[in-house]
Each structure stands twice: as C-alpha cells, then as structure tokens.
Amino acid sequence: MKKLINEPGDVVSEALRGMAAAHPDRLRVDHENRIVYRKDGPRPGKVGLISGGGSGHEPMHGGFVGLGMLDAACAGEVFTSPVPDQMMAATRGVDAGAGVLHIVKNYTGDVMNFEMAAELAAADAGTEVLSVVTNDDVAVQDSLYTAGRRGVGVTVLLEKIVGAAAEEGRSLQEVADLATRVNDNGRSMGMALTSCTVPAAGKPTFELADNEMEVGIGIHGEPGRQRLPLAPASEIAAMLVDPVVGDLPYQQGDAVIAFVNGMGGTPLIELYLMYNEVAQLLDRAGITVARSLVGNYITSLEMAGCSVTLLKADDELVRLWDAPVNTPGLRWGV
C-alpha cells in the first residue's frame, strides 16, 4: 500500500486540518467534533443544511460546505458513519431559528445516527429538524451497508439545488419537499476498474483481475451487480445508462442534469470520454441534457471507475442549479 499519510489512524483529523488551512476564507473546522462549518454562518432566518458520512468520498461532504450548499458536514472515520454527538453538535451549530434539514445517504449507520441526533436536538433545544434520505443507486436493492437502495451521486446534485433554495429564504418544509422531489427524480449507477484500499486495512477491499471490471459497485468498495470482462467505454456507458434510464423511467422529451462522476482514481480525460458516450446514448433516447457535471465529486478513495447520475430537471431545478455556489468542491456564479 502506498499512500500520502502519516499514521493510518490520523488520516481524517489531519485531512481536516489541511482543509482548514487551505480554505480559511470559507470554512471553519471544529476539530474536536470533526465538523466542517460554513465560515459566515449561521445566517438568521435561514434553514440550516447538514450532511455527513464516512470520510474517503472527498470532496463530499466537507468540500460542499459554503455559500449555496451545506452549512455543515460531519466527518466520520473512513467509510464509517459519524456518531450522533457529532450530528447533534452540527445541528445546534447551524440552527438560526428556521430549522435544520439533515441530508442523509441511505446507509444503515448514517440513517440511525442522524435519526438519533434529530431526536436529541428536538428534545434538548427544541430545534425543528426534518430529514431526507437519498437512495438513487439502481444497482442493487439491498447491500452490505443498506436496507434498500444506496445513496450516491444524486446527493451531490441535491445538496447544490436545495442549498440554493435555502439561500432564497424558503421554509424548512419547502426545502425538505424540494429535497424529496430531487431524490425521487434522480437515479445512478457506478462501476469500478480497481478496488480501493482503506488506510487502516492496508489491502484492497476486493480483488479484480487485470481483464475484469465490477459493474454496480457502491462507494464503500462494496461488490457490484456483476463482474464482467473489461469492455470498451462505449459498452460500459450503455451498462450504466440503460438501467438508469429504464428505472424511473426517463422518457423521450425529458430534460436532465447529467453527472459523470469519477470514483477517485480516474483521470478527467477518461471521464470526458465517458461523458461523450453517455451524451450520445441520451441523444439517441431523445433525452435532452439541460446541464452537465463531470469530475470527481463523490469518490471511493483511489478507486478507478465512474458513475452516471441523471436527474430529471424542470425549469425550477435548472434555475436553482445555476444559482451561485462557493465551496471548495464546487464554485460558479460568484
């Protein structure tokens, strides 16, 4: 195992110190509780937005804290849920009187711990907390970490769109309803060319031969839907797009936000090549790409591979997508 680390047990805390040092204009970090906060928050009357999860998926979630996205993000150990005390501290830290929305990926530990934090916040401080659980992965119904579908790429799009709505001053219920609408209209599917190596484990999570790929993987290195011989990018794109399009289903005439995400170890030249294949498949299906996003945004350490996310988008969602955002991981319009 070759990694740019000191001690495996210090990776998360030292990475958070690096984030604080790199972005003092946008972020402040509670190192004791491992919470990344928006520096200029909380803003009175604004709904607070919190997400979080295991580390190793950077820039998600800490990299999406700032204007137009999250108010705080809780960092767990690598691929391990944060604990309720972290989430409760973050909830208190972003409560500006308008309530708090928890954005939770559908993994058993995340869901349970965020639920506990919401109950504690309501009992302790009377904070109104609503939650949305993302579950956009069409690859498997249940997995090693979930009951039901996993939350993956739609989480990024949801945090951006809902973040813009919160900036407009919408109520907690309005923001939560929008988050549910985004989740209901988005689907994702991923694949891997290699496994990833958790620093504390020191060895790959699973083994793939040089001529194999795993289709339908999760972001924690979970095995996929099937292991297949390595194929050209055009065939891989169809393996990802076809199940996504067929699941909602997306129909001729729909407009989408198309998101081709790298899993951490795939260079942009390959991601853009994949996006070209995805765009051609959508064009043949009569689906219009209203907006696109290409890059490493929800990763699995150094895994090579990619995922495709499609979000059915109306004029309101596109407008909120275009709204200004200023975070370490996503920035435009400012």
Rank of each mutant, 00 (worst) to 15 (best):
N135D: 14
D71E: 08
L120G: 08
K160E: 02
D110P: 04
D25V: 01
L301N: 02
D242S: 04
D242Y: 01
G151M: 09
P249Y: 07
V83G: 15
D95R: 03
L310R: 10
D71W: 12
L282K: 10
G190H: 04
S13H: 15
M213W: 01
N211K: 13
L248M: 15
G126L: 11
Y37K: 08
M69K: 01
D322S: 05
S171D: 06
R225S: 09
E58P: 05
A285G: 08
P249R: 01
V318T: 14
Q226N: 03
M213G: 03
P24Y: 01
G186D: 08
A96C: 04
Q280K: 14
D315Y: 01
V100H: 11
R92F: 13
R43S: 10
M303D: 07
I269Q: 06
R34T: 08
V308P: 13
M87R: 11
C196K: 10
A20G: 15
S55I: 02
D322T: 03
L228D: 05
V256D: 12
Q226G: 03
Q251D: 13
N296H: 06
T197H: 05
V140N: 15
E128I: 07
S131W: 05
P243K: 11
R150L: 06
L320V: 02
G56W: 08
A121I: 02
A89S: 14
T327H: 06
N211W: 06
G216L: 00
M19C: 10
V12W: 08
S51Y: 10
V245T: 12
V94P: 12
G148R: 09
D136G: 09
A75S: 13
G329K: 07
G45R: 05
R181F: 06
M69H: 00
D314E: 11
G218W: 09
T309H: 07
D184S: 14
P324Y: 06
V154D: 09
P243V: 02
L311P: 05
G109N: 00
D315S: 11
L101Y: 11
L208E: 14
E32T: 15
I298K: 09
F206P: 04
G45W: 00
G202D: 11
Y275L: 13
L273V: 04
A90Y: 14
A200F: 00
G295M: 07
G56H: 07
V308T: 04
M69S: 04
M274C: 12
P8V: 02
A90N: 14
G286Y: 13
L320N: 03
G151N: 03
D124H: 14
G305L: 12
I269G: 09
L144N: 02
M60C: 05
G216N: 00
E316K: 14
P84D: 05
L158V: 12
N211E: 15
S307Q: 12
L271P: 06
K2D: 10
E115D: 09
M19P: 11
V29F: 11
L27Q: 01
A238D: 13
M239R: 12
D25K: 07
S188D: 03
I103F: 09
R43E: 12
N135Y: 00
A165M: 14
E302R: 08
A98K: 02
R291Y: 07
E270T: 00
L208W: 05
I298L: 15
A233E: 06
K203L: 08
W332D: 12
N261S: 04
G216E: 00
C74R: 13
A166G: 02
L273I: 03
G54T: 07
G148D: 03
V47Y: 05
Q252W: 03
